[in-house]
Amino acid sequence: MKSEISTHEFSMRFTSTPRGARLARRLVSHRLHEWGHPYDGPANQTVTLIAAELVSNAVRHGHVPGRDFRLRLTADPDALRLEVSDTRTERLPELRAPCGESGRGLMLVEALADKWGVTPRQPGKTVWAEVRPSPATGR
């Protein structure tokens, strides 16, 4: 018996504003729910939280006037992958000790994602994270 492999993809550009970031986060959660990862499930909550951090960083640190950021979400049986691309080249994200009330976002991504990284592109960069949902827990 041949098993069916289900792969999903969602990609969209968003304005580089807090409103665009909020919409991106909500659409990530909605798509995951449509793809079988319920709103209140660990996979949806984990990837949505990672999305909130990455799109917030794109708006706060990757913003170039007149340029949007792009979000791409893919799901296959092995992993949920989130990619956030912006056009700012000179500011690459890095893990560092938090400073005051900020600087914890990438530490959170590091703790929640199974893998994450930064891929340069022209112009800008793509910050990506992968989560492998567990069949037993949904995360």
Score class of each variant (00 low, 15 high):
1 M>T: 06
2 K>Y: 15
4 E>A: 13
4 E>Y: 14
6 S>G: 04
7 T>A: 08
7 T>F: 11
8 H>K: 13
11 S>D: 11
11 S>P: 08
13 R>D: 12
14 F>R: 01
15 T>V: 01
16 S>Y: 02
18 P>A: 03
18 P>T: 05
22 R>T: 05
22 R>G: 01
24 A>P: 03
25 R>K: 14
25 R>H: 02
27 L>D: 07
28 V>Q: 08
28 V>F: 08
28 V>P: 03
29 S>I: 00
32 L>G: 12
32 L>N: 15
34 E>G: 14
36 G>R: 08
36 G>L: 08
37 H>G: 06
38 P>G: 15
38 P>K: 13
39 Y>K: 05
42 P>D: 05
42 P>M: 03
43 A>K: 04
44 N>F: 03
46 T>N: 04
50 I>N: 01
50 I>F: 01
51 A>L: 14
52 A>C: 02
52 A>V: 00
52 A>N: 03
56 S>I: 01
56 S>K: 00
58 A>H: 00
60 R>E: 11
61 H>Y: 12
61 H>S: 14
61 H>N: 13
62 G>S: 07
62 G>M: 09
64 V>D: 08
64 V>R: 05
66 G>V: 13
66 G>E: 08
67 R>Q: 09
71 L>S: 07
71 L>M: 09
72 R>F: 07
72 R>D: 09
74 T>Q: 04
74 T>K: 10
75 A>F: 02
76 D>Q: 02
77 P>R: 09
78 D>L: 09
78 D>V: 07
79 A>I: 03
79 A>Y: 13
81 R>Y: 02
82 L>N: 02
84 V>G: 00
85 S>R: 04
86 D>K: 15
86 D>W: 13
87 T>A: 10
92 L>F: 07
92 L>K: 12
92 L>H: 15
92 L>N: 06
93 P>T: 12
96 R>E: 11
96 R>D: 04
96 R>Y: 08
96 R>C: 03
97 A>E: 11
99 C>D: 15
99 C>L: 06
100 G>Q: 06
100 G>R: 03
101 E>C: 00
103 G>L: 14
103 G>V: 11
103 G>M: 10
106 L>W: 12
107 M>K: 06
109 V>G: 00
112 L>V: 13
113 A>I: 05
113 A>L: 10
113 A>D: 01
114 D>E: 14
114 D>V: 12
114 D>W: 13
117 G>V: 09
118 V>F: 15
119 T>K: 13
119 T>F: 11
119 T>M: 12
121 R>Q: 07
123 P>C: 04
123 P>W: 02
124 G>Q: 03
124 G>F: 04
125 K>T: 11
125 K>C: 00
126 T>G: 11
127 V>P: 03
127 V>L: 12
128 W>G: 02
129 A>H: 01
130 E>D: 10
130 E>S: 02
130 E>P: 08
131 V>L: 09
132 R>K: 14
133 P>L: 10
134 S>V: 06
134 S>H: 10
135 P>K: 04
135 P>I: 02
136 A>V: 13
138 G>D: 09
139 R>Q: 10
